[in-house]
Nucleic acid binder design. Structure first.
Lengths: 115, 115
DNA sequence: CTTTTATGAAACCAAAAGGTTTCATATTTT
DNA sequence: AAAATATGAAACCTTTTGGTTTCATAAAAG
């Protein structure tokens, strides 16, 4: 089944799995040992991660190694980046607004001390 | 209720809502008119988006305007960026590997033509 | 060959998600 | 004041999620 990568990273356990195998592949049992939940539960998470392309599994003897496909995160990155300009614009606007407020306050304070 | 921003953007309808209000705030009814599902369903999505800080709602008369808080996406961006170096490294590795394969092939071809 | 080990997969379960319809309430409009 | 509009919220329903236990199977180790 094909899956949405946004759904893939929605679960904290799946993000933890991805992090665990981000530098080097691990077999399924080794991954599951680091978690409280059962191996079967982790197996399902790995299945989902595979279905959305964030992991590739390769068999070696009786073990199956999970390798992170971090390039797939570009899809998330691209989605976020389309909004960066917008949120920076807003922050700039806020900044100039606050600066104006500041200088207005200074003028006001000055008037007060001159009184 | 406090919510996870990763869960917030996991649903395609919620991403669509966020996109719709990314440039200008809209009241809840206007948002829901653009979707097939009921207003109540959209209302719930907006509630979730609010709970994870991706939207701020402000009342004006009987209407409630939803404004996107796109800076909140920085959280997603930060998470993705921690892996960018890793995935670039892998891509570099692949590239040099392919280059070596290429030059090996060239030498091989040359030998063939010289024969 | 027997026993471990690593995994796949089925059956089952509770809670969460995503939806609907319906009704109450507060603001406009007319 | 009456009607229309915008929203909040409850009650209810189905599907999906995330989890469990159990059993089968294949490879590796003794």
């Amino acid at each position: 089944m094909k899956r949405d990568v946004f759904r893939g990273i929605a679960d904290p356990t799946r993000r933890a799995i991805l992090h665990m195998i981000s530098t080097a592949p691990l077999n399924i049992n080794s991954v599951s040992e680091h978690f409280e939940v059962s191996r079967a539960a982790i197996y399902k998470h790995i299945k989902i991660l595979t279905e959305c392309g964030l992991i590739v599994v390769s068999q070696k003897g009786r073990e199956r190694y999970c390798e992170a496909q971090l390039q797939k995160l570009e899809e998330i990155s691209d989605w976020v980046e389309q909004y960066r300009e917008l949120w920076n614009k807003r922050l700039d606007f806020l900044e100039t607004y606050l600066q104006r407020l500041q200088s207005k306050k200074k003028r006001h304070d000055k008037r007060k001390t001159n009184r």
